[in-house]
Every structure is written in structure tokens, then in C-alpha cells.
Design a binder for these strands. Structure first.
Lengths: 256, 256
DNA sequence: CTGACAATTCTTGTATACAGTTGTAAATCG
DNA sequence: CGATTTACAACTGTATACAAGAATTGTCAG
């Protein structure tokens, strides 16, 4: 059951993990040389890694410029959530249809782990487990393709949370997960779907609707929101803001 | 509205088209240098093309052997159809939610084109248009991600049809498409979904349930089905067939 | 004639080289 | 002093070279 992954796959996993856990904030530059150094491989392979991650939507790699961790726009974020809702609804249906006793035990164990991480205050672990809850469900649905798609959107949601969400993200989620497990166990598809929809709704709400936070990231969105407010309150002098030419903060790019 | 695509993208489109239109039957070998020759690019770029197509499920590229056009298994085929149903249901919902008058005209025009191709007996065009009907709907749903996923499964269905389906595939489909358009135009989501589901069901039926056909492709599956029949009818002497070690037919690989 | 083993030929995996672009800071001009 | 141009450094795009792994063919023993 242990498959020997290629070096490219390993690097993919590593980078993916780093992005998902927000160790590399959205917009971080990912020069091919540098990655090659760190992973001990040539640019040829790094390139494959980046292409893969780009197809998963975790990396922006515009034609002739340096790749960066992705910065989904608000519109993209909404699309992703819309897609995720569709996928998770279907997953719930499929999991119930193919229910097996071990699923209950496994899921409950997972939720317990989430609870433990939350109480221990391990934010990083907590975030990871919250995501894994959903990918686990995806595995139980027994459809590789849906599982792949779900994995993709779940990853991307981490990015969205990092960009637009509040820092303390995965708090009450644990209880909602518990409710979902209960509904699944009861085999009540309608209820499970309802709860799942509500769960995703509240995640999306936390992620998108309370906007700014996130210490000045996505200046453009923030400013345009302020502009709207100004325009609505009378001042007509807002007009087009001279668009900022580059990321305003953090000449980051990994620690050197 | 014309975006300058890179050479890699062009090659991707070309190969994709060739596979979808079944000009390259499932299992055809795709050696990197040969493709490089034909596309006038180095293996480096061909490799990117193949990776892309592999991620779309149109190409099998196992680690150290030459890539081939994909040969989905029956199980995979079922997964793909299951996923496609989910996607098309959602697409119908979204299209109705965002309905615009021009959609009706556009779709009806498309259906007319399908009808024309069918009557003219242009099989290749007919197949392509039948697929495009669905990807058009995908575009109208206004969700890039769903559109991408839908495009992927629709392409793959062409492969499945090539592998397991009857030759005369897209016959009555035109009428079903017409019905779908009518339901969309009426804004009746439930009806539209029902018709779409039925439509996909019949496509799947044509593709999977009548099995063999397809002139000896997937010899293994065919033989194992025959073995079953023999075993059931009394002869016990069937046993394991010595598994054929390679594709029995067509040393094809493009014309040289 | 069958099946195994070896030599040869194809193909792929990976690194590297070089050319072409882009970003940026210094230099120049109004 | 601010706007433009120029020059340089940082990166990416693509081809090619070479090593290593499959596939195939030929040969020979049974």
C-alpha cells in the first residue's frame, strides 16, 4: 500500500502542503532556480511541479514571469465555493449510498483529533485536519474523479481563507463536522446535505463576507470597497484609483 | 477575443481534438520525439503537452513507458459518467438561474447545426457538435471551474464511446438536445434536469451496456465476457486465458 | 517448434546551456 | 525634482546531450 512516489511528486506534496498550511502566503514568489536548489533538482523538474500545482489552482504562473502562490480573486473565490458545494452535496449522497460501518468509526476518530488539536491550540494542525475531514469524505464516496476535484477545491479554499479570511478560522467547525457525521450515520441524506450546505455557507461567510482583516492583503479589493462606501455616502470624487503596480508588502520570497 | 496561444497550447488543442474525434484510437502510442517532429518542437515541450493531456485524462503516461491515448476501464467510465451527471445537473441549474435571451438563440442555432451534420452524414462533425452542445452549456453557467471540469468529462466520454460504444452514436441525441433547450427556455429547472439526466442515461447506455462492438478493441474485456458465457453454459474447460501481453492489433502509431 | 536469454534499438528521465524577456536601479534629460 | 531612458541583473523559454530503462529481435538449448 506504500507506493514509491517520484521526486516530482514528493516536491509537489511538499509545496502543496506549504501553500495550504499558509507557510507561503498568497503572492509569494517561487523562482524556479530557488526551488530547484531547495528540492535538489533541476529546473526541468521544478517546472513540472509548478505546472502541476498551477493546474490545481494553487500557483499562478503567467507566461513570462515568476510563478507565485495563487491569489484568487473574489470572483474566483465565489466560483470555487459554488463548485465545492456541488461536490460536497454529491459526496454526501454517495457516501450514504455506499455506507460501511467502519466509516463511522473513522470519521468520529477524525473529529476527535480535530477537537484535540483545537483545544491544544495547534492552529496549523487544526486547519489541516479541518480540510482533511472533507477529503476523507471524498475518499469514501468511491469516485476517484470526484475525489480529485474535491481535493482541488478544498486546497484552494485554504488559499482563500488565507487571503480574505479571519485568522481564527476553524473554531466552531468541529461541531458542524460532528453533526455531519451523525447525519451520515443515520443515513439521512437530506439532513446531511442540509447540514453540509450550512457548514459550507458558514465557512464561506467567514472567508469572504467579513472582508478586510488579513492585515492589508489584497489592497485593491479593500480600497474598492472603501471607494464604494464613499461614493454611496455622497462624495463624488472617488473615481478610479491609480492601480497599485505591485504587491505592496513583503518582499518575502522564502527566508533566504 | 482572439488570444494568442502558445505553441504548447496549440499542440494541446491539436492532440486533444485528434483524440476526441477518434482519429487516434484509444491505446495509440505517442512517442515524444515523434510528436516533437510533427509539431516542430523539442521533447521538452511535447512533454508539457502530454502532461497536460494526462491531467485531463485523455492520455495515459505511466512512468517509464511511452504515452498512449487513454483506455479508460469500465469502472473509470462509470465514474466519469457519474461525475458528468453531477456536473450537468448543476450546469442546468446555473444556466437557468443566469438565463439570457441570447442563450436560447445560440443553443437553437447549435442544435440546427447538429441536425444538419447528422443529415449530411458527417459523422466526425456530428460527434464534435454533440459534445460542444454540452460545453456550450458549460460556458453559459458562468463558472470557470465547473466549465473546466465539464469539458474534461465530456472529452473523456468521447474516449469511452470510442472504446465501448456503438459506431453510430450520436443519432437521436439531437432531439434530446432540442428538448433540453426547450425546458431551459421555459425556465423549468426540474424538467430540464430530468431530461438531461435521461439524456445522459441513454448516452451512457449506448456507451457501456451494449459492450463489445468496437471491432475487437479491449480484447481482454470481450474475451472475459465470452468466457463467462461459456462457463455458464456448461463447458468447464475455460479457466484463465493466458493473458495477452500487448495490444494484439494495429501496430498503428500514426502513419509514418 | 517452444521458451529463455542476450544484444540491440527505442524511448524516456534529467541536467545543463544559451537565448530572449522582464524587472529594476542608475543615469540622463527636461 | 520628476519623468524617461538605458543598462544590468534576474528569470524564464527551449533545445540538446547523455545516462538509464523498456521493448524488440535474434539466437540457441531443450
Amino acid at each position: 500500500m506504500s507506493k514509491k512516489s517520484s521526486r516530482v511528486d514528493l516536491a509537489c506534496q511538499a509545496l502543496r502542503q506549504a501553500i495550504i498550511e499558509q507557510a507561503l502566503p498568497p503572492g509569494t514568489k517561487l523562482p524556479e532556480d530557488e526551488l530547484g536548489m531547495r528540492f535538489g533538482m533541476s529546473r526541468t523538474l521544478v517546472r513540472e511541479v509548478l505546472a502541476q500545482l498551477q493546474s490545481e489552482g494553487l500557483v499562478d504562473a503567467p507566461p513570462r514571469r515568476t510563478a507565485t502562490t495563487a491569489r484568487p480573486t473574489l470572483d474566483q473565490a465565489k466560483e470555487i465555493f459554488e463548485t465545492r458545494r456541488m461536490l460536497e452535496r454529491e459526496v454526501v449522497r454517495l457516501v450514504i449510498a455506499r455506507w460501511q460501518p467502519r466509516f463511522g468509526a473513522e470519521l468520529e476518530g477524525h473529529v476527535r483529533a480535530e477537537e484535540a488539536a483545537r483545544q491544544a491550540g495547534e492552529a496549523r494542525v487544526s486547519i489541516r485536519l479541518a480540510g482533511e475531514f472533507h477529503t476523507r469524505l471524498g475518499e469514501m464516496a468511491g469516485n476517484t474523479l470526484i475525489r480529485r476535484y474535491l481535493g482541488e477545491v478544498v486546497s484552494r479554499c485554504s488559499l482563500i481563507l488565507a487571503l480574505y479570511g479571519r485568522p481564527h478560522s476553524a473554531d466552531c467547525a468541529v461541531n458542524e463536522h460532528r453533526e455531519i457525521v451523525a447525519a451520515l450515520r443515520a443515513g439521512n441524506a437530506d439532513a446531511a446535505i442540509r447540514i453540509m450546505d450550512h457548514h459550507l455557507g458558514s465557512v464561506e461567510q467567514r472567508a469572504l463576507l467579513d472582508g478586510d482583516s488579513a492585515a492589508g492583503f489584497d489592497l485593491g479589493a479593500v480600497l474598492s470597497r472603501y471607494s464604494e462606501a464613499l461614493a454611496a455616502s455622497g462624495s463624488t470624487k472617488v473615481a478610479r484609483l491609480p492601480k497599485p503596480k505591485a504587491l505592496p508588502k513583503s518582499k518575502a520570497r522564502g527566508k533566504r
